[in-house]
Write a protein that binds this DNA or RNA. Structure first.
Lengths: 349, 349
DNA sequence: ATGAAAGCGCTAACAG
DNA sequence: CTGTTAGCGCTTTCAT
């Protein structure tokens, strides 16, 4: 607990702080012998460089911030995991901020990270309005925004092509002769919910199959979804396909269908979004759209690090979802687990 | 992005840095007028105090570290969520470190947090040996350890009474006439796995029902559990009760039993641990042991903050699990299509 | 009520 | 190869 400083080591070694500093930072411009001697002293005295002092002197903390709306959502925790891992590998620390769906806390987290000297931030905040977000991001050396489009001057950008994903889902259902397809969307506070709903509507409109009465929204949790599904199917028993905002919603729907004695997929085929771990453990295992959440995190960190380094080449990454086909749409036999590789489609603006 | 320092504000206001400092820190020993004037300047210039510089000067960062083995595990992400929220409310930042089940990274995270000047740490690392852990913790003003017992001189302590929990589970099974009870434990690297296994063994020994061949270990993921369950039941078809290390393992087991056409709970009653969100969505919904993960996080932060403040009163918190009874042990309740199944509400026996 | 000086522990920019 | 001189932006004494 006693604090050993660089000066202590220098004194013990009979050299200047600078020399110790050079050894600590692996700067070879010191003689082998002194380097070795200092190294030994460092261990003996148990010296640990102070990151705080170093940050102040270098104006760089080797710390990144990641702001997510909820960590109990597997979607975000997987992003966090990928980001954490990558940051670690690059010698950076990740300050993870969980803002609990609260725009005020999103704002505060951004300020707080700034004060703590974070070199860059990665933000996945569905709620904070663009104007405020952009203003806050100005204060950082580098930033990356996930999940909504931003100009490359403001931040790097990682988005998921939900439009394409919903297209895949609907084509899959159509190919299996489902013609009365409903959607369990999220309440409008969710940006991706809006996108997925719009894509759904457009697609079915184009196929002249749209019935807006079959498009309902609920809070994205299994309880709300359970209720919504029960009501939806009681009102519209002819439904034979169901696209859900995410896998949690789909799980609630499956449970509801079970309680209604509606067979899946025979009576109703169900598709989720995200492929969280639970998806394959449900009964029946859930067909779902997925992108690699880990990859989002990994790419976000790479991108923000690039930007910190002054390379603004790759300003946007669009990830295309893939359909993981399981029994909730095709029934028992086809045991073929779709291999899902990350489909990374980076392009410069 | 331009850096406004305290000196800039002081200059603009025609006062010294110290006066600005006093205003920033709410020290009233400044005249109302100058305080107001400075406050105005601060807003106008967009001055933000540097947390880094302050940390260096005060030797305190108002930052806490939380080290968990895996964030994709809902168990830990809920702890993190509780901790995050509480830290935030107390004006602290939470540096979340995900160490991916890797003891080397557990070690590195502890060092890294120390270098970054974290005031305290909360550690839930199943793998790092006590001796190493204790040594590392010495460097912190305060520490709290979750999930394994430590002396109060080393750190505050939050543990779950797994012994009692396993007792609840087994009594429940016994009461339902299960006499051939197996356990799917975790590999020995997991401290709580060891505790739960020991409790299981002791309990059944005391009831003269122990058969060590029915106690098997696997990696705590659904795939390993699937395999282990298949093998276990093929070798011992008489098994009619199964206690699992956690809910993920139980989910894998349920899937395996389904594939073996073993009925749950009629043929085998299954109990998990943790009550992660997925538990009630499985088919059948899973009976499981639970404590409030959020509370663990909340308590941990409170405790470490107490210790930073010099109060070492509350050195240990023991949380007792409750058994949430669902269909995986008691079968299906009478069905109703209008009301939701009541199994959403946890209750203690 | 306010200011001056001295540092927190480190690195940067020159010297030599 | 190594040392010296200055800070980084803030807080802490101590004066005034």
């Amino acid at each position: 607990m006693t604090k050993v400083t660089m000066a202590d080591v220098a004194r013990a070694a009979g050299v200047s702080k600078q020399t110790v500093s050079r050894v600590v930072n692996g700067n070879n411009r010191t003689s082998k012998e002194t380097a070795a001697r200092i190294q030994k002293l460092i261990e003996e005295l148990g010296y640990r460089p102070s990151g705080v002092a170093r940050s102040l002197a270098t104006n760089s903390s080797r710390t990144l911030g990641l702001i997510v709306p909820a960590l109990n959502n597997p979607y975000y925790s997987e992003i966090a995991e990928g980001a954490e891992q990558t940051a670690w590998e690059e010698g950076y620390n990740l300050l993870l901020c969980n803002v609990l769906q609260n725009p005020e806390r999103e704002w505060a987290a951004l300020r707080s990270l700034e004060d703590r000297g974070a070199d860059g931030v990665i933000v996945d905040t569905p709620q904070l309005p663009d104007s405020k977000l952009f203003e806050l991001l100005r204060h950082y050396k580098a930033a990356v925004v996930i999940g909504r489009s931003v100009p490359s001057s403001v931040a790097g950008n990682i988005v998921v092509d939900d439009e394409a994903g919903v297209g895949l889902a609907l084509e899959h259902l159509l190919a299996r002769n489902r013609r009365t397809i409903a959607m369990l969307s999220a309440t409008s506070a969710y940006a991706s919910g809006r996108v997925r709903k719009r894509a759904f509507v457009h697609f079915l409109e184009a196929h002249e199959m749209l019935d807006m009465k079959l498009v309902v929204a609920c809070e994205p949790n299994d309880e709300a979804s359970f209720e919504a599904t029960v009501q939806l199917l009681q009102k519209h028993p002819s439904i034979n396909g169901l696209v859900c905002f995410n896998d949690i919603v789909a799980a609630g729907a499956l449970k509801a269908l079970r309680s209604l004695d509606v067979r899946v997929p025979d009576d109703v085929a169900v598709i989720g979004h995200d492929d969280i771990r639970m998806a394959r453990l449900l009964n029946p295992p859930l067909t779902t759209l997925t992108v690699s959440k880990r990859d989002i995190g990994v790419n976000a960190v790479r991108m923000v690090l690039d930007r910190i380094g002054g390379y603004n080449r790759n300003t946007k990454v669009v990830l295309s979802p893939e359909l993981v086909v399981r029994e909730s749409t095709v029934g028992k036999p086809p045991k073929s687990t779709t291999t899902r590789e990350s489909s990374l489609r980076p392009f410069a603006e």
